[in-house]
């Protein structure tokens, strides 16, 4: 017993190798001193190799969760920047197109048609009165049912269209005829852009009817019930002015006009 306590005390009190205490400082041969230097080189080498080895193992570690989350954040920022770049290009192209076509009456007609379609499919930025519907997860550990799923968002969006919405965006992502909304874990992918709870659904429409119709809709009732049952968040706020950004829209690949 005593021996163990001594070992522990020794460990904590005397960190120096016994060798240093027991020997009087001696003058050693040059060979031994060179050996000592070589040892120092080896120690440095070891440290550097370990460092490099750890760096080389990075792709392996990138599979760990934290690294994945970091990459998701980076990629989202990166794609958001790209989207901004596309917005700027689209703006300047629209401007140039405007100038090129404004000169002739056929050009003006084509332009008017195009702008209307752009607003219709969600390429153009629009502004108007409307509502902001916020829906969020309940306490996660509570129940899987308290998580907002893609279907919940789709149901709310469907009810908003029913209530007369003219344009809708989810967390800044404008809905188009080819928009996708899907669940991935606790996040939802809106047109491939991951967004997390709470989800902010903005809808532009007649201020006299849109908020009233949606509030009375069975879906709104159901979600208000979920707030009590599962602790979900759900709120409807009327707004005098909302701005919805436009989005990218490439030409159809399979469909041709008839």
């Amino acid at each position: 017993m005593n021996g163990y306590r001594d070992a522990l005390a020794e460990l904590l009190d005397r960190q120096l190798d016994h060798g240093y205490r027991q020997t009087e400082p001696r003058k050693h041969s040059w060979a031994l001193r060179a050996f000592s230097a070589v040892t120092a080189v080896v120690i440095g080498l070891l440290i550097a190799v370990a460092y490099q080895n750890t760096q080389a193992a990075e792709p392996h570690q990138a599979r760990t969760k934290d690294a994945l989350i970091d990459r998701v954040h980076q990629q989202r920022i990166h794609t958001d920047e790209l989207a901004e770049q596309a917005d700027t290009l689209r703006d300047s192209y629209t401007q140039a197109q405007q100038e090129a076509l404004a000169g002739s009456s056929s050009g003006q007609r084509a332009l008017a048609d195009l702008r209307e379609l752009e607003a219709l499919v969600g390429v153009a930025k629009v502004r108007g009165p409307g509502v902001v519907v916020t829906v969020g997860d309940g306490p996660v550990h509570n129940d899987a049912a308290s998580l907002v799923q893609d279907r919940d968002v789709q149901t709310i969006v469907n009810a908003l269209w029913f209530s007369g919405a003219e344009a809708i965006s989810i967390d800044g992502q404008r809905l188009t005829p080819v928009s996708t909304i899907r669940t991935a874990g606790d996040a939802i992918l809106v047109d491939f852009r991951p967004v997390t709870s709470p989800y902010e659904i903005k809808a532009i429409g007649d201020p006299a009817t849109l908020p009233r119709t949606f509030r009375k809709h069975e879906v709104a009732d159901r979600f208000f019930e979920y707030t009590h049952k599962y602790g979900m968040k759900f709120s409807i706020n009327q707004k005098e002015r909302l701005t919805l950004m436009g989005t990218t829209m490439s030409a159809p690949r399979y469909a041709t006009g008839t």
Binding site: D17, Y20, F35
Partner: peptide, 23 residues
């Protein structure tokens, strides 16, 4: 290696450094 290294540095400062012990 780090242990040997810091032990060596400390011994040097204590003026009891010994090449043989270090190696």
């Amino acid at each position: 290696a780090l242990d040997a290294l810091f032990g060596g540095v400390r011994a040097k400062l204590d003026k009891i450094f010994d090449d043989k012990v270090f190696v």
